[in-house]
């Protein structure tokens, strides 16, 4: 809660940061957000099975069961775990949106949350918003307009509206496996596309904005995989794709990632048929 005089103001965003054995990286990100955007967000650090000695000093929840300690939770399971905990502790309703951050995301050292909130206010149909990465080709669509709606958005910094979460979450048995994302796909290849399909199917758009730019520091995965206790990068990519393709086949009967793309794009196109006033934001 933010104190203004004697009145406590609710913060609109809950930021969830996933840590696995990189406490300094996570603490730096936490402290930067707190410094520049502490008035707009509460921050919750999820320990994704970190070793006890490598927990972040700000950790809020710790997935400390054996499987989590051995393999971590990865982005989607980790965020499910945090969101499900907020839901079970009835804190989900305290916020308007949830900023799901991997700890390798790097922002410029300045406030940016209000800009994100402004975009959400200006775009009431947007359910998921992501800053644009300096490394993404999508930036080429964001030269004239700083917000566009996409049918594929790389995960890492999703800001998700509460209403969208309530539209699709599993309230019956909320856990790291199922609350918002399909955690059965451990490494998560394709889970982002499924999530975006569900968003558009529920008439929520998924946008990227260049008002806030970020970087993804993949050096952690490339150089510190032993510390994070994950596979070396090439092995990770191989498993990520193999498991994801198997998941697509089992869950959807899709034999190719292209099927998933056509699937999500059909919802995307349908969204604009239902909302022709938003065609300016179509890429």
């Amino acid at each position: 809660m933010l104190s203004v005089g004697h009145i406590k103001m609710k913060k609109k965003i809950a930021t969830l940061i996933l840590n696995r054995n990189l406490p300094i990286v996570t603490e730096n990100l936490y402290e930067q957000i707190l410094k520049y955007d502490g008035n707009n967000t509460d921050i919750f650090v999820i320990e994704s099975g970190s070793d006890d000695a490598l927990k972040c000093k700000y950790s809020y929840w710790h997935a400390d069961w054996d499987e989590a300690r051995s393999h971590g939770l990865r982005y989607f399971q980790g965020m499910n775990y945090g969101l499900a905990n907020l839901y079970k502790s009835k804190k989900l309703d305290d916020y308007s949106a949830f900023f799901l951050l991997a700890n390798d995301i790097v922002f410029e050292k300045k406030p940016f949350m209000q800009d994100l909130l402004d975009v959400l206010d200006e775009h009431p149909k947007v359910g998921i918003l992501s800053p644009c990465s300096e490394d993404w080709g999508e930036k080429f669509f964001l030269k004239k307009d700083n917000v566009k709606y996409f049918w594929t958005v790389n995960p890492g910094a999703y800001l998700i509206k509460k209403e969208l979460i309530y539209d699709i979450c599993d309230k019956k048995n909320p856990s790291e496996k199922n609350f918002l994302f399909d955690g059965s796909n451990f490494r998560g290849y394709g889970v982002d596309i499924e999530m975006i399909s569900k968003s558009y199917a529920n008439e929520w758009a998924v946008a990227i904005t260049s008002k806030i730019m970020m970087n993804e520091n993949d050096s952690f995965l490339l150089e510190q995989s032993d510390l994070i206790k994950t596979e070396p990068y090439d092995e990770h990519i191989k498993l990520y794709i193999e498991e994801g393709l198997e998941w697509m086949k089992t869950k959807f009967g899709f034999n190719s990632h292209w099927s998933m793309q056509v699937y999500v794009k059909s919802f995307y196109d349908e969204f604009f048929k239902m909302n022709p006033n938003l065609l300016n934001y179509k890429i």
Binding site: G137, E138, F141, T152, N154, H257, W258, Q261
Partner: peptide, 17 residues
Amino acid sequence: LPIRVKNEIPPEIQLPK
């Protein structure tokens, strides 16, 4: 190749466009 290449529009966006 179903993974991203830095600074390129992914083919799943590029081709339909």
